[in-house]
């Protein structure tokens, strides 16, 4: 029996970037959503669970504050994890570490595992979060736990004994690796096609244990080292001249006329 942990981040949604009057990113009005690739990690956890026979834990550290305003969004992400794959979830909500940095997130995850006695054989994570996209939390967690690490995994081919065979994606090549357990794996979007949870799964999720913890609860005292000084929205304004015309000939003629005026046609 081997347990699995899945790292799930509630990320700021990059589809909704609002600009304050001063050109700054209006972070308070940007909702959090489950980081896209973590859905692939959850799908993979659901698949492996049957093979390994152990429990699945979801772990999430709230990254953006204030806790009061973000509580609903982050719990929605964790509920999705419970619905898809997890038997139990741990959510760290701590005002003192907000906004987090990646070192703090990894330390908090390691501290949580230690204090709760979680010893998963495999930790699954996304290869990059959708807000920060730094691809570092999974490797950091591995280093802190003393686990093996393999990033950018396209396929978990086989779990045999205390080894896992995976396909890893790099820019110039793909490679097949054999890696010993315990192991942290970050997955790509190509690994599977995540299906949304079914209604039954969603209903079941509300009955599963969700532990909301503070830093004190896991014996954690560090503070983030990073201080964010500025977040400026990159403005590109486009003309947004959209042709809605049932007659295709006319629509195309209109477009060509506009492009001629722009001087972008040969």
């Amino acid at each position: 029996m081997k347990d699995i942990a899945v790292l799930v981040k509630a990320s700021l949604n990059p589809e909704i970037v609002r600009q304050g009057s001063d050109g700054r990113f209006d972070i308070d009005y940007t909702p959090l959503k489950i980081s896209d690739i973590d859905r692939n990690a959850l799908e993979e956890a659901a698949r492996l669970k049957g093979l390994l026979g152990g429990k699945v834990y979801a772990i999430s550290v709230l990254s953006w504050g204030p806790v009061r305003a973000r509580d609903k969004d982050v719990k929605l992400a964790v509920q999705e994890a419970l619905a898809k794959a997890a038997d139990e979830a741990y959510l760290i909500e701590e005002e003192e570490i907000l906004p987090t940095d990646q070192a703090i997130v990894a330390s908090a995850i390691a501290a949580l595992m230690k204090s709760k006695g979680l010893r998963p054989a495999i930790v699954l994570a996304g290869e990059a979060s959708v807000d920060e996209s730094t691809s570092q939390v999974p490797a950091r967690v591995a280093a802190k736990l003393g686990y093996s690490f393999v990033g950018h995994v396209n396929k978990i081919i086989e779990v045999k004994g205390d080894k896992v065979v995976v396909e890893r994606d790099v820019e110039e090549y793909t490679e097949i690796l054999e890696v010993p357990l315990p192991l942290v794996i970050s997955v790509t979007q190509s690994i599977n096609e995540p299906k949304p949870p079914t209604l039954i799964q969603i209903r079941m999720a509300s009955k599963k244990p969700l532990h909301v913890l503070s830093a004190k609860d896991i014996g954690f005292t560090s503070r983030p080292a990073r201080s964010i000084e500025e977040m400026k929205v990159v403005t590109t304004s486009r003309k947004q001249l959209i042709i809605e015309e049932a007659n295709v000939e006319k629509a195309v003629e209109k477009l060509l006329e506009l492009l001629h005026k722009e001087g972008v046609l040969r």
Partner: peptide, 23 residues
């Protein structure tokens, strides 16, 4: 900011709790 360098140095950053930023 290549994948191999990210993976190798994120392990280093994790071991020593160093800040890391990519791109």
């Amino acid at each position: 900011s290549t994948k191999n360098v990210r993976d190798g140095l994120a392990l280093l950053a994790g071991l020593h709790d160093l800040p890391l930023a990519s791109e």
